[in-house]
Amino acid sequence: MNRLEELKKHLKRGQVYRRDDLAKWSKSVDRLLDALVEEDTLQKLSQGLYYYPKLSAFGKTPPEEEVLIRSFLKDDRFLLTSPSSYNSLGVGTTQLYNERTVYNHKRHGEFKLGNRKFSFRMKPHFPSKVTKEFLIVDLLNNLESLAEDPAEVLKNVALKVRTMDTRKLKRDVSKYGNAKTKKILAPLLESPIKQNAS
């Protein structure tokens, strides 16, 4: 069995590999990687990042975002979201954004992985999953970068907050809100109407 076939034995479909992951199986990993890309076994996603595609009835499938980001960061502590997620809150945002935001502890900046763009933002704290409380805080943190009219969104947020779990929202504002967001939400969370709401 030649070295190329030997390396292929270690590959699993649907997995994303860093060059370093594969170097432990071959001393001439760069030459073998070039050959695997050339024969279309692996797809190069970015510098030092490769994907072994799963096959479906429609051909090769792209990597799952979570798998892709976990390999890119070499870390599973991240939160994947998008400004389009704000639309689920019902506060007047309707734009669809062709971008994904990755809150993480390691990388900052815009990165293209395969044919997808990701905005990596380093944050000391973020939740393990997206909740509506976090989305409200995140929306206000990023309000100025959105296409919608901020005044209209703020008016709708004030109404939405009255229907939400005060305790959870206060916790998320405290953990994840920037100074401006805390200032906006503080009076809404102290409102007596809010305290009586379920």
Rank of each mutant, 00 (worst) to 15 (best):
F134I: 14
L49F: 10
A147K: 15
R3F: 03
L185M: 11
K112F: 02
S56N: 10
N178F: 08
S56T: 15
P150I: 15
K54T: 14
R77L: 12
N196Q: 09
D172Y: 12
H10W: 06
K132M: 10
S71I: 08
M164N: 03
L185A: 02
E99G: 04
V29A: 02
N142H: 15
E110G: 01
K8H: 03
F72W: 14
K106N: 03
K60F: 07
Y86V: 11
Y51E: 06
S46A: 14
L68R: 12
A197I: 07
I136F: 03
F58R: 15
P127W: 12
S174H: 13
K117N: 09
R121Y: 05
P83M: 09
K132F: 05
W25K: 10
W25A: 09
V161A: 01
D34C: 03
D34P: 00
H125I: 12
T101D: 00
Q195L: 14
E66L: 06
F111P: 03
R70I: 02
K74Q: 14
V130W: 09
K123A: 05
K183I: 00
D149S: 03
R77S: 08
E39H: 03
N104T: 09
K8P: 00
R100V: 09
R3D: 06
L45F: 13
N104M: 05
S174Q: 14
A23H: 05
Q15G: 00
F78A: 01
P53S: 01
N141L: 11
N115L: 11
F78D: 01
S145W: 14
K182F: 10
E39N: 13
S28N: 13
L33Y: 04
S28L: 01
L33K: 11
E148W: 14
L169R: 08
D138E: 08
L11I: 11
L49C: 11
S28F: 09
V37N: 04
A179R: 15
K123W: 02
L33Q: 06
N2K: 10
A186L: 09
L45W: 12
Y50P: 13
A158K: 15
V173H: 02
D165N: 15
W25R: 04
D165S: 11
Q195H: 08
R100W: 11
N87H: 03
G92V: 03
V153L: 05
R13H: 06
T61M: 09
P150D: 08
A158S: 15
F120L: 11
P62M: 08
L33G: 02
V102K: 06
K160T: 04
D165H: 14
D40N: 12
R107M: 02
L45T: 12
K123D: 01
N196Y: 13
K175C: 02
S88G: 02
R31S: 08
S191E: 10
S84L: 09
L139P: 08
E133A: 03
D40C: 05
F58P: 05
N196W: 12
T94L: 12
K168A: 07
L79S: 08
D40M: 10
S28V: 12
E110V: 14
Y176I: 13
S56A: 10
R162D: 01
R171C: 01
K160C: 00
F58E: 15
V102G: 00
H10P: 00
E38W: 10
E110N: 10
F134M: 12
